[in-house]
C-alpha cells in the first residue's frame, strides 16, 4: 500500500499543505511536522546517557528519576508527558518546615535530602 502523506513528493525539503484545518490532525501530518525534531532530541537523550556512562563516580537521585521517567515512554497511553513530569515531582503533600534554598534542581531529592 502506498504511504500517503501531505508532504509533497520529490521536494528536497519538506513542504506542507494544510488539508486538516479545523479537524483532528492526521498522524502522518504530525510525523511530517515533528519526526525529525523528536528524532534529534531522542538521539540527544541517548548521547547524554552514554556521556553519563563514560564519566566516573556515582550518579545521584536525578539520574535515578531520569531512568524512571524513561519508563513513561513505554506506555501506549497519551499521558506520557504528564507521567514524565510526575516521575520528577515531589510526591508528598505536606509543606516543608523551612525553605533553605530558592532553587529547584528538576528532580526530588527525597525527604532525607530535601532542604
Amino acid at each position: 500500500m502506498a504511504i500517503q502523506s501531505n508532504r509533497i513528493a520529490n521536494e528536497p525539503f519538506p513542504v506542507f499543505i494544510w488539508p486538516f484545518q479545523g479537524h483532528m490532525a492526521d498522524r502522518k501530518n504530525i510525523l511530517d511536522l515533528y519526526f525529525l525534531d523528536a528524532r534529534a532530541r531522542l538521539i540527544d537523550i541517548a548521547a547524554f546517557m552514554d556521556r553519563v556512562n563514560r564519566a566516573e563516580g556515582e550518579t545521584d537521585f536525578r539520574y535515578d528519576q531520569f531512568q524512571d521517567a524513561l519508563k513513561a515512554l513505554e506506555s501506549d497511553q497519551p499521558n506520557r508527558a504528564e507521567n514524565v513530569l510526575l516521575a520528577f515531582s515531589d510526591p508528598t503533600d505536606e509543606p516543608i518546615p523551612v525553605a533553605t534554598t530558592k532553587a529547584a534542581c528538576g528532580a526530588w531529592p527525597g525527604e532525607a535530602n530535601s532542604d
Binding site: 513530569l85 529547584a104 526530588w108
Partner: peptide, 13 residues
C-alpha cells in the same frame, strides 16, 4: 506555581 519538582505539590497546596 513552583518550579520543576515542586510544582505538583505546590499547585495543589
Amino acid at each position: 506555581t513552583p518550579h520543576l519538582e515542586d510544582k505538583r505539590k505546590g499547585t495543589q497546596l
